[in-house]
């Protein structure tokens, strides 16, 4: 089984770092709300497992002026993509 982990707070919360040890091979991470600011920090994402799929919510990136920023590590998805991810992974763990 795989899990989708959503992170919804800014990097200062260190939520992603808190979530990281609990991730398993094949899991996915989705940044939403203030969590999308993680896309500005290489630090958190760089240490992550290369097997990990990372996503970021387009609407929240747009709202914060981050669409044109370098966010190589994360695939950008919209709300429909969010729903699809919830189906693709076996469960959703929310970190807030």
């Amino acid at each position: 089984m795989t899990s989708l982990h959503t992170i919804s707070k800014a990097p200062s919360s260190r939520l992603f770092e808190c979530c990281l040890p609990a991730l398993k091979h094949g899991d996915g991470v989705l940044f939403i709300e203030d969590g999308v600011y993680y896309c500005l920090t290489d630090a958190g994402l760089a240490v992550s497992n290369p097997d990990l799929e990372v996503f970021s919510l387009q609407e929240d990136l747009d709202a914060r002026g981050l669409m044109n920023r370098k966010i190589d590590q994360a695939d950008v998805i919209d709300y429909n993509g969010f729903v699809e991810l919830c189906c693709r992974y076996d469960k959703v763990i929310s970190w807030f």
Binding site: S3, A22, S94
Partner: peptide, 17 residues
Amino acid sequence: DAERLAEIIDKSHAVFN
């Protein structure tokens, strides 16, 4: 350890975090 936590999460139907 965290590895075991990942396993526990893995075997759950739902997780309240």
